[in-house]
Design a protein around this nucleic acid. Structure first.
Length: 381
DNA sequence: AAAATTACCAACCGCCATACG
DNA sequence: CCGTATGGCGGTTGGTAATTT
C-alpha cells in the first residue's frame, strides 16, 4: 500500500451498509479490539486490499473467513488454535485505490462518464446520497453528487452491492433447492426469483445459477439418461400433471379472460400458463386467489400485471405473485426461454431436489422466507 | 515450476416497458 | 399521439484467482 490515507478499526465487520460507510468516512482511527473469528462474508467483497492485524500489514483478496484468519495468523505469527483471542484489525485503503481489478475494465469514456469497478469513495458518495434522499431518482444522483457515473450504474451498484440486507457468501442447500424450483417454475426470470430470496440479489442468483446449478443439473440429467425406467415413470407423472394443470388453467382463464386479458399478451403459443405443479388442484387453488384479486380490482391490467414489475425487495404472497408471473411465460413448452424442459429426465434430480426433510431442517435454522411462502412451496412440490 | 484451464462475479450491454413533456 | 428519458431486467463479458495438467 502506498499510503494510509484512511484507516479504520471496525469493532465488528458488518455488511457494507450505510452505517459502515459512514463510519469509514467520519469515524476513522478508532481503536478497539476485534474478537475473531468473525463472519468475513459480511465484509464487503473486494474492499480494501490491505488489512492490518496487530500492527502487521497483510493483504487480502479473499472474502472467506478462513482465508482471512489464516492470513491474520500468519501476520501475527499464531497458530490456528489461538485465533479465538481478540486481535486488532484495521481495514485501510488509499483514496485513489479501486477495490480490485475484477470486472470489465473501462472501455470508453464518453462524456466523462466513468466505468469499471467502483472506488470506496464513490460508494461513500452514493450511499450518503441515498441515505439522505432514499433510493430511486437515479438520474439525479450524478448531477447532485458529482459522481461521474451514469444513473444506471448508480442503481446497479446500489441494488446489487451496497444496499443493506444483502447476504453474501455461499448459498445454503435450502436456497439452492429453492432457486432450482423457482427456475423451473419461472424460467430465467431472476428478478422474480430473487423476490423469494430477499437477501440475495438477482445478479447473485443468476451468477450462482450460471456457475453452479446449471452444470449440476445438466450432470444430473446426463446420469438420469441411464435410468430409463424411473425416468419414464416420472415423466409420465409430470406429463399427466401438466396436462391436468393446463386444462384447469385453461378453463379458469376462459372464464376470466375479459378481466385479465392483458396477461395473455405475450403468449401466442397457446400454452399461456403451463404451471409446474404437482396437481391440478394446486393450480386451481392458486388460480382462485389470483382471479379473485383480478376481479376485485376494476383496473384489471394493474392487478394482473403488478407482480411482474416487482422489484427484488418487495414481498408479495406466493399465491398472488406466482400465477401472474407464471402466466406470462410458458415454462415447459414452446417459449423462447425454456428452462428445464419437460423432456428433462428428473429421476436423478427428484430425490435430491425434492428432499423435503432438508428443506424442513433449513427452515428451522434459516428463516429466509415467511411461513406462508414455504407452505405454498411445499404444497406445490 | 510453469502453462493451461476453469471458476468466479462485478459490471457492462442491449432491449423493453413505462413515465413524462 | 409522439419522441425521449429513465428504470428494470436478462444475457454476457473479461480480469483475476484457483485449480488442474
Amino acid at each position: 500500500m502506498k499510503e494510509r490515507e484512511r484507516r479504520v478499526l471496525l469493532t465488528s465487520l458488518p455488511s457494507i451498509s450505510t452505517e459502515v460507510l459512514q463510519k469509514l468516512t467520519f469515524d476513522l482511527k478508532v481503536n478497539a479490539p476485534l474478537a475473531v473469528p468473525f463472519d468475513y462474508s459480511r465484509l464487503p467483497t473486494q474492499v480494501p486490499a490491505y488489512i492490518e492485524v496487530n500492527g502487521s500489514l497483510i493483504s487480502i483478496y479473499e472474502r472467506k473467513t478462513r482465508v482471512l484468519l489464516k492470513l491474520a495468523n500468519k501476520a501475527v505469527g499464531k497458530e490456528e488454535e489461538e485465533i479465538n483471542k481478540p486481535i486488532s484489525i484495521y481495514i485501510q485503503w488509499s483514496s485513489g485505490s479501486t477495490y480490485n481489478n475484477m470486472g470489465r475494465p473501462p472501455c470508453c469514456d464518453k462524456l466523462g462518464v466513468k466505468k469499471g469497478p467502483w472506488t470506496p469513495e464513490e460508494d461513500i458518495t452514493l450511499v450518503s446520497y441515498i441515505q439522505d434522499h432514499g433510493p430511486g431518482n437515479w438520474r439525479a444522483i450524478p448531477t447532485t453528487t458529482g459522481l461521474k457515473r451514469c444513473s444506471k450504474s448508480c442503481r446497479l451498484r446500489w441494488t446489487n452491492y451496497l444496499r443493506p440486507g444483502i447476504k453474501r457468501g455461499n448459498f445454503t442447500d435450502y436456497e439452492e433447492k429453492l432457486i432450482i424450483h423457482l427456475q423451473a417454475l419461472l424460467g430465467n426470470r431472476w428478478a422474480a426469483i430473487a423476490a423469494y430470496l430477499p437477501e440475495r440479489t438477482d445478479n447473485d442468483i443468476k451468477n450462482y445459477w450460471n456457475t453452479h446449478l446449471r452444470k449440476k443439473i445438466s450432470k444430473a440429467q446426463e446420469l438420469s439418461n441411464y435410468e430409463s425406467n424411473s425416468k419414464g415413470q416420472w415423466e409420465r407423472r409430470l406429463q399427466t400433471d401438466i396436462n391436468m394443470a393446463k386444462q384447469a388453467l385453461s378453463d379458469a382463464l376462459s372464464l376470466e379472460k375479459p378481466i385479465c386479458d392483458s396477461t395473455e399478451s405475450k403468449n401466442s403459443s397457446g400454452y399461456s400458463s403451463a404451471i409446474y405443479a404437482s396437481s391440478a388442484e394446486n393450480i386451481s387453488k392458486l388460480l382462485k386467489g389470483w382471479v379473485k384479486k383480478c376481479s376485485v380490482s376494476n383496473t384489471s391490467d394493474q392487478a394482473c400485471s403488478a407482480s411482474s414489475t416487482g422489484g427484488t425487495t418487495t414481498t408479495t404472497s406466493f399465491a398472488t405473485n406466482l400465477l401472474p408471473e407464471a402466466s406470462e411465460t410458458s415454462l415447459f413448452y414452446g417459449e423462447s426461454k425454456p428452462s428445464i424442459e419437460v423432456s428433462t429426465p428428473f429421476s436423478m434430480l427428484e430425490t435430491w431436489l425434492f428432499d423435503e426433510s432438508t428443506v424442513d431442517q433449513q427452515l428451522g435454522q434459516d428463516d429466509l422466507l415467511d411461513v406462508s411462502l414455504v407452505d405454498t412451496y411445499h404444497d406445490l412440490f
